[in-house]
């Protein structure tokens, strides 16, 4: 197979340099002049796996639709792969694959037929479309099932078909809107692993949308957090999470004593209701806290690493800065 090795030899990285993948400048979108979906959003990200997190209604889907040129922003500039989707949407869509959040598969077609047809709609010749469709379905883990009607698929299989149709025309960027929606924990892990593989091995940049920070932070290089259409933070993932790894300590009584003791041990303690929040420096932090609790002979109720949810990420950041 002489040509087979070519595929991995970074033939795929015309953007390997410091090229901006997605850039927005004061991007604003209001519906009917009243509902604000995006407010003055300015962000620039480099190729890689980008997590776009925010609560439901934060403006994630609106941003994706603007990136695809499906809706026009009220004001501000946007560029995807160096192209302005408001001026030349076809050029952007040629190089972007989109996986919508909602159900979008005709139940009576087989996955192979649907993905082949959509490949043709992306401009692939007939034979190439058929080949790329079965390749894309193979990469997302659908084999013999692909000849059965989609109506009989499980949610996990349907999500895979949606991902395959976004991959079929070999895009340079994938826009995935809530790819783990409706999946069970095992399905979520499998989907995230797949997205991670696409972003790393396939050499395709991925923008993955989610309302669960804990989910996307596992696979992303960059994280964009938006809330109410406003940018909360856009940063490299390591910079973001290191500042937010916090241990939450809860004791049934003697919270004040423990706080004082921990402060003596030079640990920056913050109060959050009945909880004490301590930044996690290294494993030694656990030992120090446990030692202090044992020393004061307090009934320890809870000691865990705080789960990152979007709201908490920013709440704890304020606390640690304080």
């Amino acid at each position: 197979m002489p040509g087979a090795c070519r595929c991995l030899c970074w033939a795929s990285t015309p953007y390997a340099g410091p090229v901006t993948l997605i850039a927005t400048q004061s991007l604003t979108k209001t519906y009917g002049g009243r509902v604000t979906a995006l407010a003055d959003l300015t962000v620039a990200v480099e190729p890689g796996i980008i997590g776009l997190v925010g609560a439901n209604g934060a403006g994630k889907s609106t941003l994706i639709k603007i990136l695809l040129g499906l809706i026009a922003p009220t004001s501000g500039q946007v560029s995807v792969l160096g192209i302005d989707p408001t001026a030349d949407p076809a050029a952007v869509r040629n190089r972007v694959g989109y996986m919508p959040e909602h159900d979008c598969l005709p139940p009576d077609l087989s996955a192979a037929e649907l993905v082949t047809h959509l490949g043709r709609m992306s401009g692939l010749p007939r034979t190439a479309a058929r080949e790329r469709a079965s390749e894309a379905l193979r990469h997302v883990g659908l084999y013999e099932e692909r000849y059965r009607p989609v109506g009989g698929y499980s949610t996990g299989m349907k999500q895979r078909v949606k991902l395959a149709q976004a991959l079929v025309h070999d895009p340079d960027l994938l826009l995935l809107d809530e790819p783990t929606n409706g999946l069970d924990p095992a399905g979520r892990d499998a989907m995230l692993a797949l997205v991670h593989r696409i972003g790393t091995e396939f050499g395709i940049s991925v923008l993955v949308c989610s309302h669960l920070l804990g989910e996307v932070e596992r696979i992303c290089d960059t994280l964009i957090a938006i809330d109410g259409g406003k940018l909360l933070r856009a940063d490299n993932i390591s910079a973001m999470t290191s500042a937010t790894d916090v241990l939450a300590v809860e004791v049934s009584e003697g919270t004040e004593e423990l706080a004082a003791r921990l402060a003596e041990l030079k640990l920056p303690v913050a109060r959050d209701g009945r909880l004490l929040l301590v930044p996690l420096a290294d494993d030694g932090t656990y030992d120090l806290i446990l030692g202090a609790v044992a020393e004061l002979d307090l009934p320890l109720h809870r000691l865990d690493q705080r789960r990152h949810r979007v709201a908490e990420l920013f709440a704890t950041r304020e606390l640690t800065n304080a």
């Binding site: 979008c104 598969l105 149709q165």
Partner: peptide, 13 residues
């Protein structure tokens, strides 16, 4: 079936 977003996110006007 809601397949239209899959068409309209492709170059086809």
């Amino acid at each position: 079936s809601g397949v239209l977003p899959l068409y309209f996110s492709r170059p086809l006007p």
